[in-house]
Design a protein around this nucleic acid. Sequence first.
DNA 1: GGCCTCCATTAACATTTGTAAAGAAGTGAA
DNA 2: TTCACTTCTTTACAAATGTTAATGGAGGCC
Lengths: 195, 195
Amino acid sequence: MDHSENTLRDCIQAIFPMSASANAEIRRRVEFLPAARGEVFIKQEAANRYEYFLIEGVCRSFLIDPQGEEITISFFQGASVLSPHSVRTVRERSFYNFQACTDILLGRLDAANFMQLMIAHPEVRDFGNTVMRLELMRKVEREVGLAVLTARERLLKFREQFSMLENLVPHTQIASYLGISAISLSRLRSDIARE
Amino acid sequence: MDHSENTLRDCIQAIFPMSASANAEIRRRVEFLPAARGEVFIKQEAANRYEYFLIEGVCRSFLIDPQGEEITISFFQGASVLSPHSVRTVRERSFYNFQACTDILLGRLDAANFMQLMIAHPEVRDFGNTVMRLELMRKVEREVGLAVLTARERLLKFREQFSMLENLVPHTQIASYLGISAISLSRLRSDIARE
DNA sequence: GGCCTCCATTAACATTTGTAAAGAAGTGAA
DNA sequence: TTCACTTCTTTACAAATGTTAATGGAGGCC
């Protein structure tokens, strides 16, 4: 078993521990593929029929607003699972863009095939539902954060959650994730550093 | 079968049509109870073990920010389903307050009991997962709306989604839902009316 | 009817946040 | 090394949003 497969197992076990056989069932359906830093591996409005594991690296989801600006919705760090297909797509068209922030390694599997596996295996079903519930909790947390926290507090929280990202991805991407302009982010950074 | 039960069926069928027997299984576990306008029927931080249907009326979820201000998170109009228990609670403690905006009629059922029903009945399972997926889609849409729309556009969208609420609930509640102050809401309203 | 409370609106002002433009610092390639 | 490019920061200014306080209307209650 090579490194990727071990890490795939980590992605899964971190969310919902499953038996070796259930792990193997998933493993058999997963195809590994790399994406280079900057590559948009899921495109907004494009058809997409896969579920994804992020084996290694950092990526983000984003969309283009009416002014043509990129808005970062989420960041993801491996080893983890990307938002489920049902969250990313409406009528089989991708809702967001997904872009590699570093060189990454993905594991992908056919969403319909995975759905069959969920139906057949209670363990896999629990895994899938847990993924969805965790994604929902993330959204709730973000919703609350945007509602009750100041931009400054959101930045501090971002630093807790994604400690290495501030020196890794362009600040314009972080700023749009925080709901502020890159200039405001710069101001906040120097304000905080001054203390 | 009285009016409440018919409307309970509407709540369910609107989300995921189920057989008469599955409907009956749910019905057997549901207890109807009214709440008066203004009543907070789920309290933040309080233990809560129920799933809820909103049979009739309007309610909202909200929380108290560090400054002691109420922040509206969502509005709900019957007949519909409130956010699932797993979304409303962390470690069995309610995450949000839920308040009746009008006199309402609720249907509630024990969350653990409903979970058992989901395990036993594939239809109920699909229903439960659909509820969760729809809730997730709502969160995504709201997340995107807060990210890419101006306050003015968010107000116009709110009017589409909740056309009767603007003259029904206090504007402070609507303003916090839109992420602006009540004064800004008033300014937007007069700006739009002036056109 | 008259009083009272709640709520929406408006005005004046302060603060925050965004925009545009220019400069500085770091990165990568020829 | 040097040039081009990207990105972060800074400044000055404009626009949006919030705060405080005053006004006026609607509805409930005695």
